[in-house]
Design a binder for these strands. Structure first.
Lengths: 346, 346
DNA sequence: TCATCTTACGTTAGCGCTAACGTAGAATCC
DNA sequence: GGATTCTACGTTAGCGCTAACGTAAGATGA
């Protein structure tokens, strides 16, 4: 820790280099008109002084903070991590910085975060999902900056959208089960009051079963989202107790699917011989597990990339030409956990 | 998006409520002396106007930004997520906000992030690990704010430290292997040029083997940290090819351990019957896997909590009384993947 | 009863930076 | 060769807020 006095300012750098502070300011921007020698002199003096430009002050003055507020449900989730990766990569060429927050799947916490973040005057706000508290919606609408909702296709978008239909994705899995000859199909997910994307998946699951004329009662809701592997295992235990003749189970995520599958295996059931299991999210885990787990790839990284593309257009390149919202097409990855034809003899 | 004009300021709120902007400022702080009625009137007017206080300006003026910069290697890692959770919980009572960045295990990227973050004038900086570029160290030392290094016990700490010895943790695993009667012991990890904690674990592994007089050559370095499940599987394939008589393998993380274990199982080897496998980090996965995987719990959440405790002391409560650095004691969790006595007959 | 304290505000002067405009000197043009 | 353009800076004002200080009116004390 540097003790003596306060941090050096631009005028300090200006003084030692014999220029005005405005020239120092210009020397720290890319497009400004400063001669190369002057710029190098200033930069060198700044580095020697330990000067670091103060974004707080420059943001106030220029009215450009360089912040993009991003709110995701969880920081420990391969899918959202992929989206963030796409975002980060797409914004690397800009000088925008992510102001990142996670809600733990709580819209009230989202509201709190959005308010906190808006105080920082971000140049754009990116939220996950299309469900928000009324107050949060108001904040986002009044923010005066571009807003993107991702990972969902809200019926009443606030502004820009990059997402997919969770219900349609769930339908993919149901149809796959049906194609494989399964008829007694269950669903494992968390408490739906929080995870709205999980709720949409479950709704899509039920709707698809109804269209096929199948039983829609085999549903276990267990645990607070994000539902863990352990909770997936507990849920499967309940499922087997309540409906022992279940032929296939769709899980709200790959993690719970893995937990459910290991629970079956511990109970002496063969997957998919005795019961088929599908997941959601295309985690590494679902590819490595034995058997590998059928899942749905939602193109998480693409979501981030699309959001970044839109951001660059709106914030820098050409603010005029609006980019349309993007609808991602989820893909089913059929694997061993639901394919009896692939099953190796044990 | 609100189109007309600019965002309302404090003076706008002051005007409609008939007070000075200073009173509005006070109405948005907790400890200030404003009558309850005036405060309520101001708050109500502000909400109606859609006024949100501007932290950029207040930070510049008060020289307190409310930011705590946090740099972690990865956002998709249950361990660091737990640490962040501990931090977030510990700071909830304050009005400090995390400015979060991830390095992808790259110290050069850490340097870039630290410089970027210092521009925001955080009130403290928290970094992961004790290895930094020279320029990054200089930044941190000159920052003029408290700095914490976590997840490691650096020999030359910059300021505060909350961590554990990765080498000692690896030793725990080696001794466990030895106790179980294993002598031909291997190590699977990523490219050590990046993941310095992984490097320390490997060094501790080698040192422990040497002390026991065992062969230290069975080491596979494969993949860029964070090493994935898939890379763990590939590494195990190489291990079995090069040293088919290996009895036990320590993996740098639970993820690679799971990949390695499934690779063995696919190859028809029994775990732990033919080969024992240990992981690191105590992920959910290691408990659910079949068999469950012996691992090392490093108290990730405690690390975050301790850092938060220290932060509260240094930044608010009583800046004078220094808190000592904290050394966490990793714990070995012995499980099925290394315990032959527990093995069930297949 | 008057000095003293307390409460609840208002005034003034910046925090460190940059937008907008100004300008001297050199380069360019026909 | 005078008008014009360009390059490389400097000057001025102000972004929106708060620290520090000031003050009027009521409360308190002996």
């Amino acid at each position: 820790m540097r003790k003596p006095g306060k941090a050096p300012t631009m005028s300090d750098v200006a003084r030692v280099t014999g220029v005005s502070s405005m020239t120092v300011s210009r020397a720290f921007k890319d497009d400004a008109s400063v001669s190369k020698e002057t710029r190098d002199r200033i930069r060198k003096a700044a580095e020697k002084l330990g000067y670091v430009i103060d974004s707080t002050a420059s943001g106030l003055s220029s009215r450009r903070t360089g912040f993009v507020a991003v709110v995701i449900p969880s920081i420990n989730n391969a899918n959202f991590a992929d989206t963030l990766r796409g975002l980060t990569e797409g914004l690397r060429s800009t000088n925008l910085q992510l102001l990142l927050g996670y809600t733990d799947y709580d819209v009230k916490e989202e509201e709190r975060l959005v308010e906190l973040f808006l105080r920082r005057r971000p140049e754009a706000v990116i939220v996950t999902g299309g469900y928000h508290t009324a107050r949060c919606r108001k904040f986002l609408k009044n923010a005066g900056v571009p807003v993107a909702e991702m990972w969902d296709l809200p019926s009443k978008p606030i502004d820009h959208v990059v997402g997919f239909s969770n219900a349609a994705a769930a339908e993919l899995m149901v149809h796959h089960f049906h194609d494989q000859g399964f008829r007694k199909i269950g669903f494992i997910g968390g408490d739906t009051s929080r995870d709205t994307r999980g709720k949409d998946r479950r709704a899509g699951f039920v709707a698809a079963l109804e269209k096929l004329g199948l039983d829609t009662t085999r549903i276990i809701a267990w645990g607070t989202p994000p539902i863990t592997m352990r909770e997936g295992a507990s849920a499967m235990r309940q499922m087997l107790e309540q409906w022992p003749d279940t032929e296939a189970v769709m899980c709200v995520s790959d993690l719970s699917a893995f937990g459910a599958m290991t629970e079956c295996q511990r109970a002496g059931l063969s997957v998919p011989g005795d019961i088929a299991i599908g997941g959601f999210g295309s985690y590494d885990l679902s590819e490595l597990a034995i058997p590998d787990i059928t899942t749905i790839d939602v193109g998480a990284r693409d979501i981030g990339r699309h959001v970044a593309d839109w951001l660059r257009t709106v914030l820098t390149d050409s603010p005029g030409q609006a980019v349309d919202s993007v609808s991602i097409e989820p893909k089913l990855l059929a694997r061993g956990s639901t394919l009896r034809s692939l099953q190796t003899s044990d």
